[in-house]
Each structure stands twice: as C-alpha cells, then as structure tokens.
C-alpha cells in the first residue's frame, strides 16, 4: 500500500513540463462517461443513436421467428425486362456499401415523405450505377431500371432457400429517361 501511495505521490510531484494535464483528462473522461450514460438511458434499438456515443443496441432483441422480410433493389438489364439482378455488391452501390444502403433505405422508409424520397434515392442509385459502369468502375451490365421489392424469406439452418424468397412484391420502379 505504501508503494501505491508513493507512486501516486511521485505522479503528483512530476516536473510541470511532463505533468499530465489532469483537467483535460478528466474533461475527456466526463464527456465519454456522460455521453455513454445519456446513450444508455435513452437506449432505443430502433431510434437514432447519439454517435459517437452509443448504447450498442444492435442485435439486442431476442429472435425466434424463422422468417425475414427485406426490401431490396434489383437492377433491370437493358433490353431484357425479365432479367433482374440484385444490387447488393458494393461496387454497384458506391459510395454506399450494401450495409449502408440497407440502413439508408430503412431510414427513408420511416420518413413521412418516404415515397418522394424513395423515388429520388432509386433514381440516384440508377444514375450512379450507370455513370460508374460507363467509367469502367464496375463490370455490371447496363440497366434500364431499378425495381424495389419486398422479399419474404422462410429461413432454414441449411440456407436452402437463400435464393428463393417465399414471396416478393414490387413496391416501386424507376427507369432511365
């Protein structure tokens, strides 16, 4: 114990040039702990998080349902309206990645003006996809439209239904002019 105290005393008696800036340290600590506490108190798995503070609610809900419903964009290949490809690869979605575009669509769907936003977002995706394709930044086929589907999957532990949604419903389509 005496050793502990002497270490602490030594720390307190350091020359001023090397003395730790205690006030700054404690201010930083107060920001971290205060922000974390606020994030913890208002922890809402589906609400806005207080980035960079967070209660880390991701995956905090218990699940029991062996089904999933997702909204996903599909590209319609130019000249082949029946040929659709899921737009889930990052190069097709840049600067968004798959994860960020999912989060962005999920936020848009909760907005009061979601129809206008969704149409505008899909149009933007289509324009960027085509701009990047023409610039040689990905090797996807030319698209004439993007369709947003609601997909319903029945899950199984072998993932045998991974490419076969139980049902799919067209929500919106935007085409090149």
């Amino acid at each position: 114990m005496s050793g502990d105290l002497s270490e602490a005393r030594a720390a307190a008696e350091e020359p001023s040039g090397a003395a730790p800036r205690r006030a700054a340290v404690f201010a930083l600590l107060a920001v971290l702990l205060g922000g974390s506490l606020v994030a913890f108190v208002r922890d809402d798995p589906y609400g806005e998080e207080l980035w960079p503070f967070s209660a880390y609610p991701m995956y905090s809900r218990a699940w029991n349902k062996w089904s999933a419903v997702r909204r996903r964009p599909f590209g319609v290949v130019r000249g082949e309206p029946a040929h659709e490809m899921p737009l889930i690869d990052d190069p097709y979605l840049a600067p968004f990645g798959h994860s960020r575009i999912c989060a962005a669509f999920s936020w848009i769907e909760r907005q009061p003006d979601r129809d206008r936003r969704l149409r505008s977002a899909l149009r933007d995706m289509l324009d960027r996809y085509e701009d990047r394709r023409r610039a040689g930044l990905h090797d996807g086929p030319p698209l004439q439209a993007i369709r947003l589907y609601e997909l319903r999957f029945r899950l199984d532990p072998h993932a045998s239904t991974r490419d076969r949604p139980e049902s799919r419903r067209l929500l919106l389509e935007v085409s090149t002019p």
Binding site: S60, A62, W63, L155
Partner: peptide, 28 residues
C-alpha cells in the same frame, strides 16, 4: 443493452442461431 431488451432470452432463444443463418442469405 442485450440484457435490458431481452434478458437471458438472448441466450436461451434462437437469436444467435438466426443471426448465423441470416448471414448466409445474401438478400437478407
């Protein structure tokens, strides 16, 4: 957060199983 929203059901339910399965569904 897990304990608060789910309690021990986060462990005893199929949550982890479903997370592992969903990761293998490209569209999910």
């Amino acid at each position: 957060s897990k304990l608060r929203h789910s309690g021990l059901a986060w462990v005893t339910s199929d949550t982890m199983t479903l997370l592992l399965v969903q990761a293998n569904y490209p569209l999910v």
